[in-house]
């Protein structure tokens, strides 16, 4: 009955030197194993003594998973590449400035120095009931504490809630979806490549996971095709504090225009559902339309169709509407002093 926090219980630690070793460990210990990348999500769980893996597989020594490489006209980013290394990489800066912005918007400098892109996209939700050890659906229980008449759910989902109303907190995830990134997943039984959009899963599919990764799976790399290199990017994150905080909502879009007409675009949001949301309907409606206030307005309105606000997160509707609007037409006006 007694609950104790802040002291990690014992676990066995492995620090494999390469992917093969890591995979064989994961295969050997399956659901007893906990994969640790930068560790910033992991330590919370471990220190809170809520998750108690027998074995931690720390990927710190797997150097082959680090680094950004050119791959055709796109990029391949090792899953263990830190956000700082990503932000500082000339190819990222040159071709996919939006990813830089998104990575730079995450957490704090020290966290970006240690946190990895793989960890950032695979992190667990930050629902404060779940993270505090309340035994909700996501924790194997039969209740969502965040959607009750008295629940505090300012940060929670407006879309695709299925029992659980938690949201995905990643800043890089919507950017990767907009850029049509591919996630390279390996296990002892082989390699699998998943569109970034489909890497994330909602509670309807599996209420205890945020991604398609199953025990034994390892995200090894993220490939960004050259398709959208150098196109028009928009990324914006709205949050409380300018450091540390996860997004209330963020938006990422890539766009190609020609003579004021939107030729093609991809648009994704996060902080609104348990998975980042790609706005396919909006994309379809906006394609071929002139890039102007009217189109932006329409896109914004379409984006919130079907949204179901909770007691404290109704603001996410106007926020999403405005962010999508801005993703289409940009930000208006500024002060010089």
């Amino acid at each position: 009955m007694a609950v104790i926090r802040d002291v990690m219980p014992a676990f066995e630690l492995f620090q494999p030197a390469n992917v093969e070793e890591a995979l064989s460990l994961l295969n050997r210990y399956k659901s007893d194993a906990w994969v640790m990348a930068g560790g910033l999500d992991s330590f919370d769980w471990l220190k809170d003594r809520i998750k108690r893996p027998k074995v931690v597989v720390d990927l710190v020594g797997v150097k082959e998973l680090e680094g950004v490489r050119a791959s055709g006209d796109g990029l391949e980013i090792g899953a263990m590449t830190t956000l700082t290394d990503l932000v500082r990489h000339p190819l990222v800066r040159e071709k996919f400035g939006m990813l830089l912005e998104a990575a730079e918007a995450a957490a704090s400098p020290q966290i970006r120095n240690q946190g990895t892109i793989g960890g950032n996209v695979s992190q667990d939700t930050r629902c404060w009931y779940y993270r505090d050890g309340w035994e909700c659906y996501r924790a194997g229980g039969n209740i969502c504490y965040a959607d009750t008449p008295t629940a505090m759910n300012r940060e929670h989902a407006i879309f695709d809630a299925d029992r659980c109303v938690a949201v995905n907190p990643s800043d890089t995830a919507p950017a990767l979806i907009a850029l049509d990134a591919k996630m390279v997943i390996r296990s002892t039984s082989g390699e699998q490549i998943v569109d970034a959009e489909h890497y994330f899963i909602g509670p309807g599919i599996d209420i205890t996971r945020m991604t398609v990764l199953k025990p034994g799976d390892l995200l090894v790399a993220i490939r960004i095709p050259g398709t959208w290199a150098g196109s028009q990017f928009y990324f914006e994150k709205v949050r409380d504090r300018k450091v540390w905080d996860f997004p209330l909502v963020n938006v990422a879009s890539v766009m190609k225009t020609s003579g004021g007409t939107i030729q093609d675009l991809r648009l994704a949001l996060n902080g609104v559902a348990a998975h980042p949301v790609r706005l396919r309907a909006v994309e379809a409606a906006v394609r071929g339309k002139p890039r102007n206030e009217q189109t932006a307005e329409m896109a914004g309105l379409m984006a919130i169709e079907g949204a179901k606000p909770l007691r404290h997160n109704g603001y996410k509707l106007p926020l999403v509407r405005n962010l999508v609007k801005r993703a289409i037409r940009g930000v208006e006006g500024s002060w010089t002093s």
């Binding site: 039969n142 209740i143 969502c144 504490y145 959607d147 009750t148 008449p149 008295t150 809630a161 299925d162 029992r163 179901k308």
Partner: peptide, 13 residues
């Protein structure tokens, strides 16, 4: 009453 449906306001309590 524990999940979101059009019929009830969700109230697990």
């Amino acid at each position: 009453k524990r999940v979101q449906t059009p019929f009830f306001t969700r109230n697990p309590y």
